[in-house]
Nucleic acid binder design. Structure first.
Lengths: 193, 193
DNA sequence: CCTATCATGTAATCCGTTACATGATTAT
DNA sequence: ATAATCATGTAACGGATTACATGATAGG
């Protein structure tokens, strides 16, 4: 039996706090774990079907109307999840960023870095937007205010989201430098560190 | 005609510096653009086939022996690439990180954060390794040394790789804090910023 | 020469995305 | 009531990964 995909564990992980419909899972993914492991809603149906086949999840459907499903963890599902959570962690991070790709392929000579600058500005805007999203989520998640040693999150969940936020900060900083410096004037280790 | 995938543009982009075999492209992807848009070698064959169908790439095969292919950009391919490089950039970054996923799902209570600590330590090691990789690549790419205002890269390629490097630095920093603080003692905005 | 490693290709399968279709609910 | 939006499901297609198979080359 081939091992489960990370997406499968997302489903298992979310179901641990109780039964849910695929739609509800999707909502939760969007505002939390989707920031570092995203996939479309339709995928939840596919994953759920696989998990049911393996006996890790049960599925009940309404008889009438919308015929919606309710998914729930089985005992085996809970165990599988627990094993994954405590097992060895091999898989590396992978980042897919079309902006960096485009940056990479820009011709150095192309109109004195004008293209690079525009790309960089668009990226700054996009990452700022994502930053704002994180801020909203983290406030809602119960951060205190920002003075001094400052607020501390108390759950692993919050820590994971905090990473996402720092990533966006990094991206904003990076692309700002690129926009300012134009093509090819970037200090690889950042400024003032 | 549905638009090309980013992976397709990777192939086009690399072919711009001249014809190459799929294998050679793979090598180059591994040490450069693969850091922010990775895919397996077999995918190159698939992409190449699609690109040939669209007339963006030509393919020649040896008659004998290994029957290897040589891929080359057509005029149309060059144009398509140029259009992409200068067109609007919408797609957002997506990060897939199994480590963060696991962190997210850790039970706060689970043996006083022991699991979290071990996870974090493994992540630190993995990201340190990746950092070392970047350092090797960037040295080879022609960085100067590290004093003062310091070295400046002169190509967009180097800038893109520099981002990857900063990302790894961030990850090392983050997971180190998690390892030190244990489960749920993480300042979302970092320390000393 | 033999073995290990590099280089190359293909196919099967699985995963993921897009697109579509329709049932419920809320606002005007 | 009607339109808009939220909630829900499915199918088809295309993309990505794994596994396998084999040709060349270099080191011993």
């Amino acid at each position: 039996m081939p091992s489960l995909s990370a997406s499968a564990y997302v489903v298992l992980g979310l179901l641990e706090s109780g039964p849910a419909t695929p739609y509800a899972l999707d909502r939760e993914i969007q505002r939390s774990v989707g920031h570092f492991w995203d996939f479309p809603r339709s995928q939840i149906y596919a994953e759920a079907a696989r998990l049911v086949r393996r006996g890790l999840v049960t599925e009940e459907r309404e008889a009438a109307g919308r015929r919606r499903r309710t998914l729930a963890l089985t005992r085996a599902g809970r165990d599988t999840l627990a094993a994954w959570l405590t097992g060895p962690a091999e898989a590396a991070t992978d980042v897919r960023d079309e902006g960096l790709l485009r940056l990479y392929f820009q011709q150095d000579a192309a109109s004195d870095g004008e293209g690079v600058r525009r790309l960089a500005q668009a990226q700054v805007a996009a990452h700022r937007a994502k930053l704002a999203e994180y801020e909203a989520i983290l406030v809602w998640a119960g951060a205190g205010d920002s003075a001094g040693v400052g607020p501390r999150f108390e759950t692993p969940q919050a820590a994971a989201l905090a990473f996402g936020m720092r990533f966006e900060e990094l991206a904003v900083e990076f692309w700002t430098e690129v926009a300012e410096g134009g093509a090819g004037v970037v200090d690889p280790r950042g400024r003032g560190r």
